[in-house]
């Protein structure tokens, strides 16, 4: 496939496909195109959805025909330059309390990787992750890429209730759940950060293009920062308590 290319995504949307694989180096290009679309489409722009390798551009069909929107995008692509500085977002830190009570898969990660607990935490906190996309739920950031050692597949059976703030890994990705929701990722800790807050400018703490570093804190620091230490509810927890 010749890239970039434009794909029909409905009567009022084009999908711009820029890359065919996940790479940290994609984001300056995608974010540069996003900003150029904002300038170029002006009030004919309805919404933009950047993700890993693509940008979905949703425009007002009363202002632009599909052909007009397409040619506008083609023009932007013709002389697109990656915006290494301006397009990349901020570097943000998320404080995480890594503990079995709030991260039931922490021990599984140790087991699978053969690393000590300290080494697992160090591996998770050692690098800056790129925010490739937000989705699944408001403020849920898909971040990567995890070091090979920390790769765990999703849970076979998703949990019905993952507590807010849960920090999780799945395959080469990591994230934190902004609010209580179902979820199939492996939980390894919890952050006290408010990831989605409708009272805050911009609403979401994390945005596509940001780089994120996790910082390990102890229980006291986590609680002092307003973290909720309620353990993850597990099915069967009741039974094991009865047995013990």
């Amino acid at each position: 496939m010749q890239l970039p290319c434009l794909e029909v995504a409905g009567v009022d949307a084009w999908l711009v496909r820029l890359f065919d694989r996940i790479d940290d180096a994609n984001m300056p290009w995608i974010m540069a195109l996003l900003r150029r679309c904002e300038e170029s489409f002006g009030d004919a722009l309805v919404d933009l959805v950047p993700s890993y390798t693509t940008l979905l551009v949703h425009y007002n069909p009363l202002q632009l025909t599909p052909a007009q929107a397409r040619s506008r995008l083609a023009t932007l692509l013709a002389d697109l330059e990656p915006d290494e500085q301006g397009a990349l977002g901020e570097i943000k830190e998320l404080q995480v309390w890594y503990d079995d009570s709030v991260g039931p898969e922490l021990s599984l990660l140790q087991e699978r990787s053969g690393l000590s607990r300290e080494a697992v935490i160090e591996a998770h906190t050692d690098q800056k992750y790129h925010v490739f996309a937000l989705g699944f739920a408001p403020g849920f950031a898909f971040m990567g890429s995890l070091t090979e050692e920390l790769v765990l597949p999703r849970l076979d059976t998703p949990r019905k209730r993952v507590p807010a703030g849960s920090v999780a890994v799945a395959n080469r990705q990591t994230s934190a759940y902004p609010r209580i929701s179902p979820g199939g990722w492996n939980l390894i800790g919890r952050t006290s950060a408010r990831l989605f807050d409708r009272e805050r400018d911009g609403f979401s703490l994390l945005r596509v293009g940001d780089r994120v570093r996790f910082v390990a804190v102890d229980r006291k620091e986590f609680e002092d920062a307003g973290g909720d230490t309620t353990p993850v509810e597990e099915r069967g927890a009741e039974t094991s308590r009865k047995n013990s």
């Binding site: 995504a9 409905g10 999908l15 959805v49 993700s51 390798t53 898909f142």
Partner: peptide, 10 residues
Amino acid sequence: MISEGIGLGA
């Protein structure tokens, strides 16, 4: 596929 933006009616 790698996740991408999804329009209404996809």
